[in-house]
Design a protein around this nucleic acid. Structure first.
Length: 792
DNA sequence: CTAGGGTTAG
């Protein structure tokens, strides 16, 4: 009897040892066959061990069958349930986990414990699909009801889950409610924030962790390195470097790889190369970091060379290598090169890797071949958040704003939660479209989701408010940003320029210099643009001078064009022309175009002809210039010439854009076109308009058409028979909004003189502020005056 | 540990 017991124990120990030592799936299968053959499938410990091992080998069907086999003749204990739930979760089957959990509740008297919940929750940490989030929240409810709300294991799993859904706010809530915090919990927070591109926030949490004396391991340090690298924050990066050395973590090759990545992304390739050479035998991963570093610094030949070396050494390159290499085809701008890489990716089967596909989508977007990008996107077997973002941002950046927003809506329908990157792109789309209501909605979303510390989001928010006409709101958001970068400053400066508030732009520019942020070329463009739109000629010239001599910034063609615009707008046409002749670069379409525009405003026909001759010689494919030239001939009463230019325009297929105006009332958008009758309230609108026009005529105003030379395309000629869309929108705005409230409209073309006069008049007699965004800038009409000083 | 998605100017 005793012998038999010992024998069975020995047998069990041997089996357990064999299971533990199994290194392949076939070992396990052999063992299982053996157990079944000898009728030894009734031992709980053995079965549990085997179930666990099967799921570790991703053979979840075996694990499941084993569980069923056992439970047919024995009641499983909680441990076995937990092991299988863990198996399902690890194999990305959260719903299988969930149904097993229900089975546990329904058909046993077992009480789920912290392991059950930790495993159950963890199933939702890597799973993103339609409507999963609701189930995640449901599971969280079960956790609380069962009293595990402050369990560390469960808590970490919950934080990880919410981070996966980009629910930063919920993750924080779980984190805050933990009575004690271990290094795993902290690490989950830090890496979750990194996964959601909240790099500043992750560094803040990391420094809280270190400052609080919490032990951190080399992995956490590596995650923090990711943040500083992404932020290109060399100062903190070097601090973390020191910290890593002090802790002795630099013996780990992956930490050194993190350092290489940091210096690569901060532009210090030499240090990166030095560290790279210190590694005796660089592995694939450190090579990838170096390749990406070369790419980042436009050392494309070096990247390709290292890539070749890897191939020669017989190393198997992975998706990281390809993703790191793909940007090489971007600055080159060669579609064929991208196609080549695309071909390689398809051949090697890497096309199913979301990172690779997303990178390719991005390259296609940058090259503005959106059809290819979309086709690739539609073919993704599994769309990651990044792939959605790549597509949405591609649309937004190429001006296909409606497509961007409709894709975002689709995403929401599928219950896929946006992260800060998505939000930034959508804000950019709102800014371009001028949809304030949607922009405000996104702002609320930002607050709810705790994306408020993300500098990209906030900068895009400033820009959105400015471009939707809410300059004060833009400023408020701007003032609340604690750590502003150059782009943030640029956005606010350009906002003032857009609204014709040049002095404020200059004040802000000086504040920026005092705050220690160095201006870039874009900063000077923003400032010069602001000066130009406010007629601040001397200030602009001083800035231009200081840009070259104090800041050592080399002016690009855009800067010269801006100066031409500045001088030209102010009527200093001769000076503008002289400036063009004296500039060290070859003057291009931008400079001549700016001069031509100025000539039209100041009615200098001869110089206009000179400028347009230059433009035609360059064969610029822009309808605007042709319209301007046609207008010149009209002024000269040379109608046949004017007609022939328009014919060229038609032949070249440079379609003129029809004018339309958008107005938002109570969150609804109304779009008007010229002489539009389609609005349900058209009758009342035209009656209101007639009433105002009559009043205007009585006050001695008359319609002005022929003398105006703005680039408003055909519209003006139609004025005698048609009513411009902005008048309709304004009349509607007066009817549909409360007296005394501000009216805001957006027009796709430039405002014509007649409408400008009309709007001035209306603002006076109705005592309303009317804000007009045209193709170029904002006009604030108040009390019969416009902020542009009749100069646009 | 390495890799994919974001803001400003024209």
């Amino acid at each position: 009897m005793i012998y038999r017991a010992i024998a069975s124990t020995v047998q069990r120990d041997i089996t357990t040892t064999l299971i533990n030592q199994s290194t392949t799936l076939s070992h396990l299968n052999q063992l299982l066959t053996h157990l079944i053959r000898h009728n030894q499938t009734n031992n709980l410990v053995t079965i549990t061990k085997l179930t666990q091992k099967f799921s570790d080998f991703n053979s979840i069907s075996n694990a499941k069958n084993l569980f069923t086999l056992f439970s047919n003749s024995n009641p499983p204990d909680l441990f076995l349930y937990n092991v299988l739930i863990r198996g399902f979760s690890r194999n990305n089957l959260p719903f299988e986990s969930l149904s097993l959990y229900y089975q546990l509740l329904k058909s046993t008297r077992l009480k789920p414990d912290n392991f059950t919940f930790a495993f159950l929750v963890s199933g939702f940490s890597g799973f993103l699909a339609f409507g999963v989030e609701k189930f995640g929240i449901l599971v969280h409810g079960q956790v609380i009801v069962n009293g595990f709300g402050s369990d560390l294991f469960v808590g970490s799993a919950l934080v990880d889950m919410y981070m996966n859904f980009s629910r930063i706010g919920y993750a924080y809530k779980v984190f805050d409610e933990m009575r004690e915090r271990d290094s795993v919990l902290w690490n989950t927070m830090v890496s979750g924030l990194v996964r959601n591109c909240c790099y500043e926030e992750s560094l803040r949490v990391f420094s809280d962790m270190v400052g609080g004396g919490m032990r951190f391991d080399s992995t956490t340090l590596a995650v923090a390195l990711t943040s500083v690298a992404e932020l290109q924050d060399l100062r903190n990066g070097m601090l973390i470097h020191c910290l890593g050395v002090k802790m002795g973590y630099d013996v780990h090759e992956y930490v050194v790889t993190g350092f290489i990545s940091l210096y690569s992304k901060c532009g210090d390739v030499n240090t990166a190369k030095l560290l790279f050479e210190l590694i005796n035998e660089p592995d694939l991963i450190s090579c990838n970091a170096m390749i990406a570093g070369f790419c980042f610094n436009n050392e494309n030949e070096s990247s390709v060379r290292l890539f070749r070396e890897l191939l020669v050494k017989g190393e198997k390159v992975n998706s990281s290598t390809i993703v790191g290499l793909i940007p090489v085809s971007c600055p080159f701008g060669y579609l064929s090169l991208t196609r080549c890489i695309h071909g390689f990716v398809v051949k090697s089967g890497m096309v199913s890797n979301p990172s690779v596909s997303t990178a390719l989508t991005t390259v296609y977007s940058r090259l503005n071949v959106m059809e290819l990008a979309r086709r690739l996107f539609d073919e993704f077997p599994k769309k990651s958040l990044a792939s959605w973002n790549a597509m949405i941002s591609g649309y937004a950046q190429n001006g296909l704003t409606e497509m961007a927003i409709s894709l975002f809506r689709e995403m929401q329908k599928l219950d896929i939660h946006p992260n800060p990157v998505t939000i930034t792109s959508i804000l950019s789309a709102c800014a371009q479209l001028g949809t304030l209501s949607m922009g405000k909605w996104v702002h609320d979303l930002i607050k709810k989701e705790k994306f408020e510390s993300n500098i990209y989001v906030l900068t895009a928010l400033v820009d959105m408010y400015a471009k939707c006409g809410n300059i004060e709101e833009a400023r408020q958001v701007f003032d609340n940003i604690t750590e502003k970068n150059v782009v943030t400053w640029n956005a606010m400066i350009s906002a003032y320029g857009l609204h014709g508030r040049g002095q404020e732009a200059l004040v802000l520019f000086n504040q920026m210099l005092h705050s220690g942020v160095s201006p870039t070329g874009v900063t000077f463009l923003c400032v010069l643009y602001a000066c130009s739109h406010a007629g601040l000629v001397e200030e602009g010239q001083k800035i231009f001078h200081s840009m070259v001599h104090d800041h050592g910034t080399e002016p690009l063609s855009e800067h010269y064009a801006c100066m031409v615009d500045l001088l030209g707008r102010a009527g200093k046409l001769e000076k503008a022309l002289e400036f063009i002749y004296k500039m060290p670069l070859e003057p291009g379409p931008a400079e001549w175009g700016a001069l031509l525009g100025a000539c039209m405003v100041h009615k200098n026909i001869d110089m206009a002809r000179l400028a347009s001759d230059k433009l035609f010689a360059m064969d610029v494919g822009s309808a605007g210039y042709y319209v301007l030239l046609s207008n010149i001939y009209s002024v000269d009463r040379n109608y046949s010439q004017a007609a022939s230019v328009r014919k060229i325009l038609r032949n070249k297929n440079l379609a003129k854009t029809p004018g339309c105006t958008l107005i938002e009332v109570n969150g609804y958008q109304h779009v008007f076109t010229s002489s539009d009758q389609s609005h349900p309230q058209a009758g009342a609108i035209y009656a209101k308009l007639e009433e105002l026009m009559e009043e205007m005529r009585e006050a001695g105003f008359h319609t002005e058409t022929s003398t105006s030379l703005h680039d408003v395309e055909e519209e003006e000629k139609e004025l005698m028979v048609k009513v411009h869309s902005e008048k309709l929108a304004i009349a509607f705005g007066l009817l549909a909004s409360e007296p005394g409230t501000e009216i805001k409209i957006i027009k796709n073309l430039r405002v014509c003189v007649d409408c400008h006069n009309f709007t001035k008049f209306v603002s006076k007699v109705t005592d309303r502020v009317i804000v007009v965004r045209d193709a170029n800038r904002f006009h604030h009409f108040k009390d019969g005056e416009c902020s542009c000083g009749d100069y646009w």
